[in-house]
Computed example of a mutant assay.
Amino acid sequence: MTTHTLHVDRSVPLAAEPHSGHNRFHPDIVPLIEVAEGDEVVIECRDGVDGQLGPGTTIDDLPTFDSNRIHPLTGPVFVKGAEPGDVLEVEFLDIVPEPHGFTCIVPDLGFLREEITTPFLAHWDIADGFATSQQVPGVRIPGASFMGLTGVAPSARKLAEWVERDQRCQEAGGAVLLQDPVSAVPQGGIGAEGLRTWTPRENGGNMDCKLLTKGAKLMLPVFAEGALFSTGDAHFAQGDGEVCCTAVEMAGTPVVRFTVHKGLAEKRTFAGPVFSRTSYYTDPRIAAPEHFLGVMGMPINEEGDSESENLTLAAKNAVRNMIVLLQERGFSREQAYVICSVAVDLRISNVVDYPNFVVSALLPEMIFG
């Protein structure tokens, strides 16, 4: 086994160190490194807003916030042997937090954006497994660190399809962040053509699923040769939903290991993230079965269009996708539906990353004896 480390200088923004990452998804972004299956990769990451709300900032800095800089990702990582039609398994061996975090309310963002419009900024001190803030006194938030954004690159065909889907969604009145070259990294054509990282999609991305902590495995369909894996937007803690649009945001360092499952994505009737935990997780800071299989649903209809912020459709797709996974184990469609009804939990992972809200379905493995 070989260990690789990807370094970033967190004292400067991504634009000052463009060779260290990107903030758009595009298949032509040059990978930073090539790794083999089984290698461990230590990935230093900036915080989700590219350092714009560091320890010395105040609420007066919110009006100058540049949303085009959000989600500076470290990567891509080229995984040898990963080809379109495969599934890339990402095992999170560790996620190491930095000592500062923040949570903010930005007008026009969040689940209650029409009701709560007053800006707010809390800075958190992260130490000894907890986060505390002078702006939210009397509260100690236990940590369960995870990466809010983890994904692989789209193919050129998927890039074009998803751009068109976003445009149709906006034309139908949905909230969408379309392509924008301002503050894009890489600059130029790739940045202008690349997908914004705000929206979770079939390639993963900004899922904000708090269950992807140390010990979890995330499985993503591969669309481009080498998968071109990237991650960022570390969170120290988050409630399901991330309702004000920010968690305890922080810079962090995940340690990951990859496995390639040949041809698995081609065999499935859905494309999207699947996740699991195969070891007992004793930490009470996340409420989840001891040993589970999970799958995500997004509000993408049978025609392939996004139905913006349709939480019902996202929940139905999570159930549909879990039925597919149970059918892979030999159950009939009807048997799988019954199992979902008696044993599967639906969790709202996020209700803010429009247009594609995320609902997760969790299956406890203990029911299989």
Rank of each mutant, 00 (worst) to 15 (best):
M1K: 07
H4C: 09
L14K: 04
G21N: 02
H22R: 02
V30A: 14
V30E: 11
L32H: 07
L32Y: 08
I33K: 03
V35I: 15
E37A: 15
D39W: 07
E40I: 09
V41M: 05
G48H: 05
G51C: 13
L53M: 10
L53N: 00
G56C: 09
T57H: 07
I59L: 11
I59Q: 07
P63G: 10
H71Y: 08
G75Y: 00
K80M: 11
A82M: 08
P84M: 02
D86Y: 00
V87R: 08
E89I: 15
V90T: 03
V96D: 06
P97I: 01
E98P: 02
I105V: 15
P107R: 09
G110C: 12
F111K: 04
F111Q: 09
R113S: 14
E115Y: 08
E115M: 10
D125I: 11
V139C: 05
R140T: 12
R140Y: 14
M147E: 02
V152W: 00
P154Y: 09
S155H: 06
A156S: 14
R157C: 10
K158G: 09
W162D: 04
A172K: 07
A172S: 12
A175H: 11
P181D: 12
V182K: 08
Q187S: 12
L195W: 07
E202N: 10
K210L: 04
K210D: 01
K214C: 13
A216V: 05
L218D: 00
L218T: 02
M219D: 06
P221F: 05
P221M: 05
V222R: 01
V222E: 03
V222K: 00
A227Y: 03
S230Y: 00
T231S: 04
F236E: 01
A237D: 06
Q238A: 13
C244D: 09
C245Y: 04
A247I: 01
V248T: 01
E249P: 02
G252P: 02
R257Q: 11
F258P: 04
K262D: 04
K262T: 14
G272N: 14
S276F: 08
S279H: 13
Y280G: 09
Y281W: 15
P289G: 11
H291N: 08
V295N: 03
V295L: 14
E302K: 13
S306H: 12
S306N: 05
N310R: 02
T312P: 07
T312M: 12
A315T: 10
A315R: 15
A318R: 03
V319P: 04
R320K: 15
N321F: 10
L326G: 05
L326S: 10
L326D: 01
F331M: 10
E334C: 09
E334K: 14
A336P: 04
V338L: 12
I339R: 06
C340Y: 13
C340F: 08
S341D: 15
S341V: 00
V342M: 12
A343M: 07
D345L: 08
S349D: 14
L362F: 12
M366L: 11
